[in-house]
Design a protein around this nucleic acid. Sequence first.
DNA 1: ATAGGGTTAG
Length: 681
Amino acid sequence: MNIALKSVAPKNCYTTSQAIRRYMQPHTISQPPPDLVAANNAINAHAKRGDLHVAHQLFAEMPHRNIYSWTILISGYAQRGKMEHCFRLFSQMLSHHRPNEFAYASLLSVCDHCHGLQVHGLAFKTGFDAWIYVANALIALYWKNIRCSAGVEAWRVFEGMNFRNLVTYNSMIKGLGMHHRGHEAMVLFVRMLCDDGLEFDRTTLLTLISSLSVGSENDMGLKCCLQLQSTSIKTALNLDVGVATSLIKCYSTLSGDVGACRKLFLETSVVDRDIVMWTGVMAASVERDPAQVVVLFNQMRWEDDFYPDCYVFTVLLKACANLVTESAAAAVHGQVVRAGFLNVLELDNALIHAYSRCGSVDNAERVFHDMSSRDVVSWNSMLKAYAVHGKAETALDLFAQMDVAPDDATFVALLTSCSHAGMVKEGIEMFDTMRERYGIAPQLDHYACMVDILGRFGRLSEAENIIRNMPMQPDCVIWSAFLGGCRKHGETEAAELASQKLQELDPDNSLGYVMISNIYCSANSFGEGGLIRKKMDKAGVRKEPGLSWTEVGHGLHEFASGGQRHPQIKEIGSYLDGLLRQLKEIGYVPDTSSVLFDVEEEHKEEQLYLHSEKLALVYSLMNGGDSSCRVIKIIKNIRICLDCHNFMKLASKLLGKSIVVRDTNRFHHFRDGACSCNDYW
DNA sequence: ATAGGGTTAG
């Protein structure tokens, strides 16, 4: 008996010898009859496959059941997340058998936090909390509690264990990852190897790598990721498609190194790669090279013949959003519907986002209204859509209907709405509501919105107060919002300070220079403006070139400010001349204050006419934008200038059609001589 | 029988 105890105890149990003795009770000695074993096996097979009806039927028809019959069925229900079924079975079982550690572990695995506490209590009373299976399940349970990001209870269970196994560590690492504590996960990994002398497995690497991609500082995370990659090579786990996929995710989120991701992808054998890996490599390109996502998608279809699932579609939609092509988004939407993906939350959220980014707030709205359930991301996406399309009232109405708890992003969307609509009073109220009623501490984004709201309205000293009193260091966004306000209201002195700050914080960014130079030039201080230009040249900073895109036919056409490189610039030029003549007849007066540097007045006008959005509009008109489509859409990489804004307004009146321009911050819907932003942007 | 790679806002 003593020998048996020694071999069994460290493996399965970590505390009381009482529990061990109970485990060694003679009831395990008697063999169950063969037909019982066969029936249990059948139930198990069905339950694991998810045929719980069949499994339950078989269970109900059994003349005799042993503890295995009960436990198998409970664990089957647990794997499908059927908590109520599990509890019903568990309590029925109590009158026949004393539940074993597997029953406890299965039950714990489906519990929400509240039920979990009760089961823990029961396990504690019966001494089963000491069993390693149960303790492992308790660790997973406690990490699931989103309120406890420090994982106090999970750590308590973990530290209280005398013996820990692979699963113990894997569960801890997973929990740490869930709470964005990748670095601690790495430390724990070392402890697992060194202190407990345990071997890791594929799961350890998978969970560890994915915990790094969500919860570690970039530099540190990248170092750890490299170490784990070499660890995987040493153990040949780099050949595992799952490990490779998690590495792709990790590199793409930590360094944005699309090349490294592509390399990992190519190193995996064609036979092994699966749809999950394709999704990973597509997602890696979605921010920096969305066009590549479409290429990869087609490659996946033709080379590997995989049908897209909802994950793939979601990434594809995000690519459409970043490409800003509504026709592509609509085409993907069609495929989504045909593939039968109805009511997939993340997919619908991605659709809202894609339509909104592509300029169609109507379609975004349609998707939102048709959803059967919505989470905070759905609401935030819709609110954000209203915000960037200048529909502040609608956003506030929608917020009033929101049936999930708002979060920090909700208030970024609402404050953006207020700022774009010039709703100062509402903005200030919203900022207070956020703190007082919802207990959300303002972040940099929220402060930036407030500076923007107050600054635009000319309440610059209040904006400055906010900057001085905010609990964190103001960043570029804050100072450029402030600078925007200064420009609008001709506050040269304050602008100098802000511009200085911007140059310090982000020396390569032209924004600070350009804005202050614009301020001088509009005040006719060309000398000062010239000085700024020299300073900029000396610092090697270049103004971001103005670019616009518009969809004509099946392609997206790019226009650079000045247009020299465009093959059809001559034709565009003469069409533009004609348009300008007509526009001047209905009151268009070129506003040269938007031209950056000290040049002669007539050259200033020329520069203005060649702004990329004007060229894009003309090109679109030349290519049938006149008759076939009702709305002309133009995307721009920098903020639209005052003159172009005026130009677009009058053009919409003259041509009798809608023009939509998306600049860095928002959408402008021009119609019948007016803009949705009410000239407030 | 407990852990286990890819999706959505900014």
